[in-house]
């Protein structure tokens, strides 16, 4: 832990009383003290996405404050922070899923392969196919397993039936679900367990051959065993895809990610390699969060 940084701050956020008990951080103070200057340890890997001075407003609510964040290619980047800190909003801004929420205003830029996705003339349909998304709660369509995975391909059009069948199989294999469902592809996806449904949703995203997978707390609704399977899968997928994962679970961040960004009240407080962020926090608030003093 970097003692220097901690001592720089005039008033500590936590106090240790004589008997050693740590008082809770005053969250009010945290809310007002969220700076918009990020303590950044720049990644060495080439970047897939870079946001520059991204600001997002829901009506009058300033949800994302001046976030500039690099996202390295074929790495897992975890976004962590307490509830309501804007990490899901940030994730949804990357593939323009915020477009469907009325009264949302966005400034700044999101560079995806060095092209601003908010520039005029961006093909949102193509963008969303290149940046696949997995949601917090498994959300399979009330259709068969096969139809769920084939959905994106049928939307795109121009695939023959055998091509679709091939892609469905590869995607299900890619999501480590093929062995469990290969004999019941025509059964309803809603009959699967929660963990299987979530892997189906990953397969569904993989089917349209994305470059990036955006995962919004993909394991938060799952039991520990299903969670482990998803995490193993994330390790596998990193070989081919750039992954951004929002997580509530600090251990999960250390298990699956190579880079971590810490959000607080809409600002990116700290970003760097996961091990560094966890073991040598540059910001006191990151340290407090990791130590479980708030959030």
């Amino acid at each position: 832990m970097s003692q220097q940084n901690l001592s720089n701050n005039n008033t500590p956020l936590t106090t240790v009383s004589k008997d050693g008990a740590i008082k809770r951080v005053d969250e009010e103070r945290l809310l007002t003290s969220a700076e918009t200057v990020t303590k950044l340890r720049a990644p060495t890997a080439p970047l897939k996405i870079q946001t520059n001075n991204l600001n997002i407003y829901y009506g009058a609510n300033h949800a994302i404050k001046n976030v500039s964040m690099p996202i390295p290619e074929k790495q897992v980047t975890a976004l962590m922070g307490p509830s309501g800190c804007g990490k899901s909003t940030f994730l949804k801004s990357l593939n323009r899923m915020l477009d469907i929420i009325p009264d949302t205003h966005i400034s700044g830029e999101v560079l995806f392969d060095n092209k601003n996705v908010y520039a005029n003339g961006t093909d949102v349909v193509e963008l969303r196919q290149r940046l696949g998304m997995v949601f917090q709660r498994p959300n399979p369509f009330p259709k068969s397993i096969f139809e769920n995975v084939a959905y994106g391909l049928k939307i795109m059009g121009g695939f023959s039936r055998s091509e679709i069948a091939d892609r469905v199989e590869t995607s299900l294999r890619g999501a480590a679900l093929w062995d469990e469902v290969q004999h019941r592809l025509n059964q309803s996806a809603l009959g699967l367990s929660g963990g299987q449904q979530q892997r189906l949703c990953i397969a569904r995203a993989l089917a349209v051959a994305p470059e990036v997978l955006l995962m919004d707390e993909p394991a938060s609704a799952l039991d520990p065993i299903a969670t482990l399977k998803i995490e193993d899968l994330i390790h596998e997928l990193r070989q081919q895809y750039t992954i951004v994962i929002v997580t509530h679970n600090l251990q999960q961040a250390t298990r699956v990610s190579q880079y971590t960004g810490f959000f607080l009240t809409g600002a990116l407080i700290e970003f760097g390699p996961t091990a560094d962020v966890f073991e040598h926090s540059m910001d006191e608030r990151t340290y407090d969060f990791i130590m479980g003093r708030f959030g």
Binding site: N95, L127, R128, G132, M133, R137, G152, I155, M156, A205
Partner: peptide, 23 residues
């Protein structure tokens, strides 16, 4: 979530209504 799932796969609003919401 069903609508979002469809939109996130690159479906337009009408495709989402026809292929995800109506079924």
């Amino acid at each position: 979530e069903i609508r979002e799932g469809s939109l996130a796969l690159g479906a337009t609003r009408w495709q989402t209504i026809r292929n995800a919401v109506l079924p």
